[in-house]
Amino acid sequence: MTCALAAAMATLLLLPSCVAPGGNDVVERVSPPPPSAPPAHVTPPNLRSWRLDGAPQQGGLVRGQVATETVALTLDGRNVPLGADGAFIIGFDRDAPPTMTLAEVKADGSLADHPLVIAPRAWRIERVDAPYRAGRSEPEFAALRPAELAAIAAARATRTDAAGWRQAFRWPAAGRQSGWFGSQRVYQGKPGSYHSGADVAVPTGTPVLAPADGVVVLAADHPFTLEGNLLMVDHGAGLGSAFLHLSRLNVHVGDHVRQGQRIALSGATGRATGPHLHWGLQWNGARLDPLLVAGPVPAG
């Protein structure tokens, strides 16, 4: 049979192929693909859900996550900054009440409350059988202190683009802990002010390292009456560090610092009985215990 005849018969009989005389090539007729099946149902990616990591306690810091539909968050009426991914932190003062409320505002305008139970702490209380003394009242102190307090308040109110609040904090110095957050003396029944940070006994000139990324918001150009040479760093989301009694500052206001960067040297300036580093932490005005944020002080 000739190829021409085979081609004609293929037209009638729908033959699938033709072999040319004396050749080995095969021309195949490819059947059209079957109609595509309807696409399978695609499950959308998981939406953000509400989460709170850790148990609230006095002096503590807790991290959390808001749901996708949440647009604003407050803690007892105080604004809680939210990251673009919905992450947030909240802190609890040394004297935080037994209960507080996280309130969220959703995109549709609805509200949702999350009651929190704040665990109490047992503080180091020293009772002294002596009358309470109000503190320094020298004319020079009275003249200088208002400007110092104003500078500190302005620094704490400064908000930057720092994202160190997302990091795991590290101690700015290693050594023997010599002062505890929340400790307090009571003079014949009248309480004095409590210790607002944690102290590490280190020699003058010991490097002070940034506990997390941040932006310098105060670098005192002279010793303050109580704090001495004072350095303050904003870590973002309302969280900030203060380093007191320094002998030297290595950074300036506006500098961005990285975790572990040498930012100062320890000392004994201001009201200090000996060389040490005082590290204080605050979140939106709530004073926090550095031990609950960074863990135990590493040995020197």
Rank of each mutant, 00 (worst) to 15 (best):
5 L>A: 15
5 L>I: 08
169 F>M: 05
147 A>I: 07
214 G>R: 01
272 A>G: 06
10 A>N: 13
222 H>W: 00
119 A>F: 02
233 V>N: 02
261 Q>G: 14
227 E>A: 14
26 V>M: 09
85 D>F: 01
258 R>S: 14
180 W>S: 04
281 L>I: 11
120 P>M: 04
227 E>P: 00
267 G>S: 07
124 R>V: 05
87 A>Q: 08
262 R>I: 11
214 G>D: 00
247 S>H: 08
115 P>T: 11
88 F>Q: 00
136 R>P: 11
202 V>W: 02
267 G>E: 00
132 Y>K: 12
150 A>I: 05
164 G>D: 01
38 P>R: 11
243 F>C: 07
218 L>N: 05
261 Q>K: 13
205 G>K: 09
154 A>K: 13
218 L>A: 08
39 P>Y: 02
191 P>K: 04
25 D>G: 15
229 N>A: 04
15 L>C: 06
121 R>Q: 14
61 L>N: 02
223 P>H: 06
49 S>Y: 08
220 A>E: 15
40 A>N: 13
167 Q>K: 08
154 A>N: 14
117 V>M: 14
96 A>C: 06
300 G>I: 05
202 V>G: 07
38 P>D: 15
168 A>F: 14
121 R>I: 09
169 F>Q: 00
175 G>C: 15
84 A>F: 05
87 A>D: 09
276 H>K: 03
264 A>S: 11
10 A>I: 06
240 G>E: 07
18 C>K: 03
17 S>Q: 10
271 R>M: 12
136 R>E: 14
159 R>N: 15
247 S>D: 10
90 I>S: 01
265 L>P: 02
13 L>Q: 13
175 G>P: 03
147 A>C: 07
42 V>Y: 13
68 T>Q: 13
18 C>V: 10
136 R>M: 10
147 A>G: 12
200 V>C: 10
145 R>T: 10
13 L>G: 11
104 E>F: 06
73 L>A: 02
215 V>F: 05
276 H>R: 06
124 R>E: 10
238 G>Q: 06
205 G>P: 03
277 L>I: 05
211 P>D: 04
15 L>N: 08
172 P>G: 01
42 V>C: 11
270 G>C: 05
20 A>K: 14
220 A>C: 07
283 W>N: 00
127 R>Y: 04
144 L>N: 06
170 R>T: 15
131 P>C: 03
160 T>R: 01
242 A>N: 06
132 Y>N: 12
182 G>T: 01
245 H>L: 09
103 A>W: 00
191 P>T: 05
287 R>Y: 10
262 R>Q: 11
148 E>V: 04
243 F>N: 03
157 A>R: 09
178 S>K: 03
196 S>I: 13
77 G>P: 02
192 G>P: 02
293 V>C: 13
217 V>T: 13
149 L>P: 04
61 L>W: 03
262 R>L: 09
173 A>P: 04
75 L>F: 01
73 L>E: 01
200 V>W: 06
129 D>E: 11
